[in-house]
Amino acid sequence: MAGSETHHILPLPEFDRPVKVLIVVAPYYKDIADDMIAGARAELEKVGATHEVIEVPGALEVPTAIRIAYRQSNFDGFVALGCVIRGETTHYDTVCNDSSRAIQLLGLEGACIGNGILTVENRDQAVVRADPAQQNKGGGAAAAALHLIALTRRFAATPKGVGFKPGGEIRLAGTPEGGSNA
């Protein structure tokens, strides 16, 4: 039974520079969204991260909003929140698959996103997953974003000294530091 399983949860990363996160939420099911936001905020506050919350109409708009902010703003990471409950049509499959795929593609572009868009069979499942005192999927999404931000900072590119340098010196790749190309 899934309820009796134990899961390993990574400790939250520590940051030496401030972290700024955008929470993008589709509040179609407002009570569920509010619980997820509360869980995400609490997790972000544990590491001193600042955050903003924006709302979009539905789960399909969450990745688009993240893409706009990723390209045009200065957020370190993003938390995607929403809930899709299975209905009587295939619309559920489209929304689940397309929102998840778009978020994954943004992550592969380098955006640090914690995906907390619930995809559930019924409202009862959503309530348990959203509740910060139970499964706290909003908090889990925030933690995922924080881990990706930490990883991005850990592997941040350092200048390799290739190309044009001030003073007119030209260095080519593979040339030893301080060496000449002439």
Results as ranks from 00 to 15, higher is better:
residue 117 I to D: 02
residue 98 D to M: 06
residue 119 T to K: 08
residue 101 R to I: 06
residue 102 A to M: 08
residue 104 Q to F: 09
residue 94 T to M: 11
residue 99 S to F: 04
residue 94 T to F: 15
residue 96 C to E: 02
residue 97 N to P: 00
residue 98 D to T: 10
residue 95 V to P: 06
residue 109 E to I: 01
residue 108 L to C: 00
residue 96 C to I: 00
residue 92 Y to L: 00
residue 98 D to H: 09
residue 89 T to C: 02
residue 87 G to R: 05
residue 97 N to D: 08
residue 104 Q to N: 00
residue 99 S to I: 04
residue 119 T to V: 10
residue 117 I to S: 07
residue 109 E to H: 04
residue 93 D to N: 05
residue 119 T to H: 13
residue 114 G to C: 13
residue 114 G to R: 06
residue 91 H to I: 11
residue 88 E to W: 02
residue 120 V to G: 11
residue 100 S to H: 09
residue 118 L to T: 13
residue 120 V to R: 04
residue 109 E to W: 02
residue 122 N to W: 12
residue 103 I to W: 05
residue 97 N to W: 03
residue 101 R to Q: 01
residue 117 I to A: 03
residue 104 Q to W: 08
residue 94 T to P: 00
residue 109 E to V: 03
residue 107 G to A: 02
residue 105 L to Q: 12
residue 94 T to I: 15
residue 95 V to S: 04
residue 115 N to C: 07
residue 87 G to W: 11
residue 100 S to K: 03
residue 118 L to S: 10
residue 122 N to S: 15
residue 101 R to K: 06
residue 117 I to Y: 09
residue 106 L to V: 13
residue 92 Y to H: 08
residue 92 Y to W: 10
residue 98 D to S: 08
residue 104 Q to S: 00
residue 108 L to N: 05
residue 112 C to T: 14
residue 117 I to M: 04
residue 87 G to C: 11
residue 87 G to I: 09
residue 96 C to V: 13
residue 119 T to A: 14
residue 96 C to S: 04
residue 87 G to E: 11
residue 109 E to R: 01
residue 110 G to P: 13
residue 87 G to S: 07
residue 100 S to N: 10
residue 104 Q to A: 07
residue 96 C to P: 01
residue 108 L to T: 00
residue 88 E to Y: 07
residue 98 D to I: 07
residue 100 S to A: 10
residue 117 I to W: 11
residue 111 A to N: 09
residue 106 L to S: 08
residue 93 D to W: 05
residue 92 Y to G: 00
residue 112 C to R: 10
residue 117 I to R: 05
residue 90 T to Q: 06
residue 108 L to Y: 12
residue 107 G to Q: 12
residue 114 G to P: 10
residue 122 N to T: 15
residue 103 I to D: 01
residue 110 G to H: 02
residue 95 V to H: 03
residue 98 D to K: 03
residue 105 L to A: 10
residue 87 G to D: 13
residue 91 H to F: 08
residue 110 G to A: 04
residue 94 T to W: 14
residue 107 G to L: 01
residue 96 C to W: 08
residue 116 G to F: 06
residue 98 D to Q: 09
residue 113 I to Y: 07
residue 120 V to E: 12
residue 104 Q to M: 09
residue 92 Y to F: 15
residue 88 E to P: 01
residue 110 G to D: 05
residue 111 A to S: 12
residue 117 I to Q: 04
residue 112 C to W: 12
residue 99 S to T: 12
residue 109 E to K: 01
residue 107 G to C: 12
residue 116 G to D: 09
residue 110 G to W: 01
residue 113 I to C: 07
residue 116 G to Y: 06
residue 108 L to M: 14
residue 115 N to V: 10
residue 105 L to F: 10
residue 102 A to V: 00
residue 90 T to I: 08
residue 109 E to S: 03
residue 92 Y to K: 02
residue 105 L to M: 11
residue 122 N to A: 15
residue 111 A to C: 09
residue 112 C to S: 14
residue 88 E to I: 03
residue 117 I to V: 15
residue 111 A to W: 04
residue 120 V to N: 09
residue 94 T to V: 15
residue 108 L to I: 08
residue 108 L to F: 14
residue 110 G to V: 02
residue 103 I to T: 07
residue 115 N to I: 13
residue 107 G to M: 14
residue 105 L to W: 09
residue 104 Q to V: 03
residue 115 N to R: 06
residue 93 D to S: 04
residue 122 N to P: 12
